[in-house]
C-alpha cells in the first residue's frame, strides 16, 4: 500500500508535470485565463490519462512492440473523443472556451509519456493510481495558474469579484500566461529546494 500511495503522491509534487517535468505546456498556457477554465482542462486531461493508463496496462501484452506507439495514440484519441462529445453535450460553455484544446489533449505529451513510461510496464491498479496522481498534479497546477492570472488580470476568483475595477488585463492575455508560469516555476523551485 505504501508503494501505491507514493505512486499517487509523486505526481503531485515530486514529479509535478507542469512545474518539474515541464510537459504539456500548450494547454497549460492556453487554457488558464481563469481558474475555472484551468480546472476544466485539468479534469478533462485527468480523465483521459486515467482511462488510457488503465486500458493500456490491460492490453500491453497484446500489442506487438513495433506498433505500440500508434496503438497507444488510438487508445488515447478514442478517450479524447469521448471527453469531447461529453463536454459538448453537458458543458457547452466550457467546451466553447477551451475550443481546439480539447481535441489537442491527444498530443499532450504527459499522456503518451505516462503510457510509455508507466502503464506499459505496470499493473492496472498501479497505472490507474499513477494516472490519477499525475492528473491531479496537472489539474492543481492549472487551477493555481488560472487563479493567479484571474486575480491579477480581472480582480476575480472563480468569477467572484475580489475588488472593484478589475486588474491588469495583460495577465489574462497571452504574455501574462508566459510570465505568470515563469514566476510560479521559480517559486516552486525555491520552495522544493529548501526541503
Amino acid at each position: 500500500m505504501g508503494k501505491n500511495l507514493s505512486t499517487f503522491t509523486s505526481g503531485i509534487v515530486k514529479n509535478n508535470p507542469t512545474f518539474v517535468l515541464v510537459l504539456g505546456m500548450c494547454p497549460t498556457l492556453a487554457t488558464t485565463s481563469s481558474a475555472a477554465n484551468g480546472m476544466g482542462m485539468g479534469a478533462a486531461t485527468m480523465f483521459v490519462l486515467i482511462m488510457s493508463n488503465i486500458v493500456i496496462s490491460l492490453i500491453k501484452n497484446l500489442i506487438p512492440d513495433k506498433v505500440r506507439i500508434p496503438a497507444y495514440i488510438v487508445v488515447i484519441a478514442s478517450f479524447v473523443t469521448v471527453v469531447q462529445l461529453l463536454m459538448q453535450a453537458y458543458l457547452p460553455d466550457l467546451y466553447n472556451t477551451l475550443g481546439v484544446f480539447i481535441p489537442l489533449i491527444v498530443v499532450n505529451c504527459i499522456i503518451l509519456g505516462r503510457a510509455e513510461a508507466f502503464a506499459s510496464k505496470n499493473g492496472v491498479w498501479a497505472s490507474a493510481l499513477d494516472g490519477a496522481g499525475i492528473g491531479l498534479g496537472f489539474t492543481l497546477s492549472l487551477t493555481l495558474i488560472g487563479m493567479v492570472r484571474e486575480i491579477l488580470g480581472n480582480g476575480q476568483i472563480f468569477g467572484m469579484d475580489l475588488w472593484q475595477g478589475g486588474g491588469a488585463l495583460i495577465f489574462v492575455l497571452a504574455p501574462g500566461a508566459f510570465i505568470v508560469l515563469g514566476y510560479l516555476m521559480i517559486l516552486f523551485r525555491k520552495l522544493t529546494a529548501k526541503k
Binding site: P175, F178, G182, Y183, M185
Partner: peptide, 14 residues
C-alpha cells in the same frame, strides 16, 4: 533554464 525562457517569451509575446 525554463523559467527565464518563459519570462522572455512573455516579453516577446508582448
Amino acid at each position: 533554464g525554463v523559467p527565464i525562457a518563459l519570462i522572455t517569451a512573455g516579453i516577446l509575446a508582448m
